[in-house]
Simulated assay, not measured.
Amino acid sequence: MITHHDWGRPNFLGILIFLPFLDPFIGLLNWMAPERSLTPGATAYIHKVSSSVPDGAIEAVRKELTRMLFNAIRLNMHSFHIHAHAVFDENSELLAGEPLRYVARYEQEYKLLKQTESEVLGYTYAIQRDAKEEEDLRLVTQLNHAVRNATYAAKFIKDIRHNVDEFRVSPSGTIHDLYASFCLYVTGNYHGLATLMAVPASPNIANEYVELFRQVRRGYEWYLNEIYTVVGADKHLNHEIANLLNINRAAYLSTTALFEAVRVLLNLEEDILAGVQTIPQPRKILKQESQ
Rank of each mutant, 00 (worst) to 15 (best):
A194V: 07
T174I: 13
R218F: 14
D177C: 02
I227L: 02
A194G: 11
G219Q: 11
V199A: 11
V199I: 15
P200K: 02
L184Y: 05
A206H: 11
L212V: 00
H191D: 13
A206M: 08
Y220I: 12
L196T: 00
N207Q: 15
A194E: 13
V216S: 04
L224M: 09
W222V: 11
Y223H: 14
C183Y: 01
Y185F: 10
Y223R: 09
S202I: 04
I175F: 09
Y185N: 06
Y220T: 11
P200R: 02
H176C: 06
T187D: 04
R218H: 11
T229D: 12
R218C: 04
P200N: 05
L196F: 05
L184C: 09
I175K: 03
Y185P: 06
G188Y: 01
F213P: 00
N207E: 15
V199F: 15
T195V: 10
S181L: 09
Y185C: 03
A201C: 06
E208G: 04
P203C: 00
Y185I: 03
F213C: 05
V216F: 03
F182P: 01
G188E: 07
I175Y: 02
G173A: 10
A201S: 13
A206W: 05
V186D: 08
A194S: 14
I205E: 01
A180E: 13
R217W: 02
G219Y: 03
Y228W: 01
I205F: 02
T195I: 09
L212P: 02
L193D: 02
L184F: 02
N225S: 14
Y220G: 00
V216K: 03
S181G: 15
G188I: 02
T187K: 05
G188Q: 01
W222C: 14
A194I: 11
R214C: 07
A198F: 06
A198R: 10
F182C: 00
L224V: 06
Q215N: 07
N189H: 09
N189V: 06
E226T: 15
L196I: 07
H191N: 10
G192A: 12
C183R: 14
Y185D: 12
N204P: 01
P200M: 07
C183M: 04
E226P: 00
E226G: 03
V216N: 05
V216P: 01
V216H: 03
M197L: 14
L212Y: 00
L224I: 08
D177I: 08
H191E: 15
Y190D: 11
Y190L: 12
E211T: 12
S181P: 00
Y228F: 13
D177G: 04
